[in-house]
């Protein structure tokens, strides 16, 4: 009967007595009224500034609008997925270096992880946007956004993977060694698959951060959801509505990813580890 309470929310307050019930009733009514007033104020502001006008919103009844936004979103996804793959590869290498027995490699990878985690994505983007050409690196807009976003995520991915490896019980390695398996094959066949299972939720959560970072694609002129929204805006002169819809798309997609992360965490029965 005690185990039924899972969250602090459910246990913090006692079952209310009559007085508390009355207080909660009135507070609920008052807060409902306040929230309704706030909503009304916002809607009113939209109304008096003419932003509720049909011309701003009717474009969303058109198939072409959504197709164009979808095309932009495809660009966003392309960058996000490519970045994730690159970040995973880099994170994997960093993690291997971090847990290796070589002191120098250890130190180097620790430093690289700190750099990846301690520098804003935008600064990495500026590096690829402004200076990579000066250094003789000719990159397409796609890579100019994909690489910095990946670099920015790699450090967290490395740490997430490492926490997964650390969570695999020592006995697993020992058992494999007694069976005559060798170091590398123990790691890749026994330890890592388990570690990976543990950290899937955290990796999905990191995908959210990657997806958010791709919105800086406008800096390098890559056609993502935001860029296509901008084109729509200049075509239809409907800035507020289009940007609002774009923001809601991002929020919903990320929300879905987070939900997925929690669901997967529930399946693998390990709590999601904190990301960046």
């Amino acid at each position: 009967m005690n185990g039924a309470h899972t969250s602090i929310r459910d246990i913090l307050y006692e079952p209310p007595g009559p007085k508390a019930r009355r207080a909660i009733f009135w507070a609920t009514a008052a807060s409902l009224a306040a929230l309704a007033a706030l909503a009304a104020l916002i809607v009113r502001q939209f109304y008096v500034t003419g932003q509720l006008d049909g011309k701003y919103w009717s474009i969303f009844t058109r198939y072409t609008t959504w197709r164009f936004l979808a095309k932009g979103f495809a660009g966003t996804l392309e960058v996000a997925l490519s970045s994730s793959v690159v970040a995973f590869a880099m994170g994997m290498l960093l993690m291997m270096g971090r847990i290796s027995r070589s002191r120098a490699l250890n130190w180097l990878c620790t430093a690289l992880i700190e750099l990846s985690r301690g520098i804003p994505t935008l600064l990495f983007i500026y590096f690829f946007f402004l200076f990579a050409p000066q250094l003789g690196l000719k990159l397409s807009a796609f890579w100019k956004i994909t690489l910095p976003v990946a670099i920015s995520a790699a450090g967290v991915v490395a740490e997430v993977l490492r926490s997964g490896v650390n969570a695999v019980p020592r006995g697993q390695t020992e058992a494999a060694v007694t069976l005559g398996m060798r170091g590398r094959s123990v790691f890749f066949k026994i330890v890592f698959p388990q570690a990976f299972r543990y950290v899937i939720p955290s990796l999905i959560a990191e995908l959210v951060i990657v997806l958010k970072d791709t919105t800086f694609a406008y800096v390098v002129n890559y056609a993502d959801l935001m860029q296509n929204a901008k084109v729509l805006i200049s075509n239809y002169d409907a800035l507020l509505s289009v940007y609002l819809v774009a923001a809601v798309i991002y929020i919903l997609v990320n929300y879905a990813l987070n939900k997925m992360s929690v669901a997967v965490a529930g399946l693998t029965r390990t709590p999601a580890m904190p990301g960046k």
Partner: peptide, 21 residues
């Protein structure tokens, strides 16, 4: 927690003025 920072900033800088804020 789900809105990208850039999207929020763009809304604040470019969209809010349309609401006279």
């Amino acid at each position: 927690r789900n809105i990208p920072g850039a999207a929020l900033l763009i809304l604040l800088v470019y969209a809010l003025p349309y609401l006279q804020v």
